[in-house]
Amino acid sequence: MNGFPGKGLLEGLAVTAKNFIGSYFDDNRKERLFTYQYPEERMPLPENSRTFPFLVYDGTPDQLRCTACKVCETECPPQCIYIVRDSDPNGKPLQRPKVFDIDISVCMQCGICAEVCPFDAIKMDCDFERSQHGRFEELVAHLPSLLKSNDYYHHIKPTEADRVDATRKRVKKPSPAAAAPAPTPGPAVAAVLSPTPLKPMSPPADILTEDEKRAWLKGYQSILGTGPIVWPLTTKKIATTPQPPTPAPAAAAVATPPASSLAGGEPWHDSGLDLAKRMELAKDRSLADRLMAAMAQLDCQACGYDCRGYANALAAGVTRDVTLCAPGEDETKNTLETLLKEAGKL
């Protein structure tokens, strides 16, 4: 034992005294006083901070990037996403979700959905104050509350959003912004959507009471996030803001076929067409073409290839897995199986 008896005890006292006195002179949580007085003060969140997912739209909520390819639903480890693809009155499937539910009580905030999304449609939000007064229905986030603008995305994650914008070359729908101007954000929103990116931090200084602060926080997210939601879940026109034309017919014209060297082109490569029509268009073509026609025509790379590449791989026997076309679901799987069995490749 070194020193006199009790030396260790006295040294301990010295350390605690130093911390005690230091805590009164600590300057902004550097050293000795580490409390954030929540909810008046909040820790500034780093840019990468991730909590629950949200869906990004460019311009208006109708211009959401999500095409209901269901890759995120497949890859989500705890299976918290539920997607139902929308269809037009004739039953033709559309490239957007009718139902997109995320059960945030199941979501484990891993971010895998955002990583695998081929369209940069689903990204991770940083809002963690999501507690509700119920445990079941209240904790399921439905489509309207998940839709947040690209401006919001730039707001919370500027570097990442810039990178995403720079790499986004694929355009699935024409921007109806020409037809209907995006609604002007109100003054409160405009004040927040300033050029210098802010992080969600403490409420402004002139909001004083607890209730006002709480309301500000709730309003903050909802003002920025969803905007004036007009979601035509039915074809009935809801007369609030000018409606863009339903994008379905436009999608047919816009689906850019990949570089294909086949003579005769690929008329089936249109995700607006249903399976029967596509098979009809491809019926006299080679095995690879027919296989390609069976797929969902999204080039979403859910299978790991684009549609042409997957078809070629199947035809050449490189892969035998017919279950990879996630957007195509069972009908594609069955058709591929049938085709391959007929060709003796399965």
């Binding site: 034992m1 260790g8 040294e11």
Partner: peptide, 14 residues
Amino acid sequence: DEFEKLITGNEVLL
């Protein structure tokens, strides 16, 4: 260093 000074030599802990 500070942590060790607080605790490691403490006779009660020893």
